[in-house]
Each structure stands twice: as structure tokens, then as C-alpha cells.
């Protein structure tokens, strides 16, 4: 059960124990973490599951598909060239447990 830590700009982060194989987006929706929408259900089609991954994880993240790379141009909050990812494309696992992300102010 990997741990995912979502920072929403409030004092206390949201900490979720995600079922194995669950994406950062799916875990957020299932646990009512605010600020992650996931309108397309995890297909890299909507860009409403945008997160900024904290720097210490960047080397261990799964590589970005071309689809994800291009859809990141659609995010409502500004894209960060290094840290922006679509959270539906990240499944935490070895090396990414826990994983910490910052949730942007806007998804729509």
C-alpha cells in the first residue's frame, strides 16, 4: 500500500494509503482529495489531473508518453517544465513510496 502525500497549500497535507497499482489520480478521487478532477477517467485525454511532483522524485518517475507530454499543454494552471505531470499516468511503487505532490490551484 504505497503512501501518497498531496499538498493542497493548506497546513496539513492529505495523506492517502493507495491500493497497489492505483494511480495518483485514482487514489485522490477515491479519497476525496480536493483539487484533482480526473474528468476522462485516467486516459490522458483531459489534463484535469495535473500535479507538480516534488523534486526528489523526478528521477524515479515513469517516463512521459508523448500523449502526456502534449496534453500537459492543456493544463489550467501554469505548466512547470520539470515538475508538471498528469497524475493518472503515475502509479506509485518501488522508489516512489511515499510520493509527494503539490496540487495546483486550478484544473478547469
Amino acid at each position: 500500500m504505497p503512501r501518497i502525500i498531496y499538498h493542497n497549500g493548506t497546513a496539513e497535507p492529505n495523506v492517502v494509503e493507495a491500493a497497489d497499482g492505483t494511480s495518483v489520480m485514482r487514489a485522490a478521487v477515491a479519497n476525496d482529495v480536493p483539487g484533482i478532477v480526473g474528468e476522462c477517467g485516467g486516459q490522458a485525454m483531459c489534463a484535469t489531473c495535473h500535479v507538480y511532483v516534488r523534486a526528489e522524485h523526478l528521477d524515479l518517475l515513469p517516463e512521459m508518453s508523448e500523449d502526456e507530454e502534449e496534453m500537459l499543454e492543456c493544463t489550467a494552471a501554469p505548466r512547470d517544465e520539470k515538475r508538471s505531470r498528469l497524475s493518472c499516468q503515475i502509479v506509485p511503487g518501488p522508489g516512489l513510496d511515499p510520493i509527494e505532490v503539490d496540487v495546483p490551484a486550478d484544473q478547469i
Partner: peptide, 11 residues
């Protein structure tokens, strides 16, 4: 299979 165009079109 051209999400960059789609993203741009939405803009």
C-alpha cells in the same frame, strides 16, 4: 494521435 493539436485547438 496528435494531442498537441488538440491542446492548441482548445486554446
Amino acid at each position: 494521435n496528435r494531442p498537441a493539436d488538440h491542446a492548441a485547438a482548445r486554446r
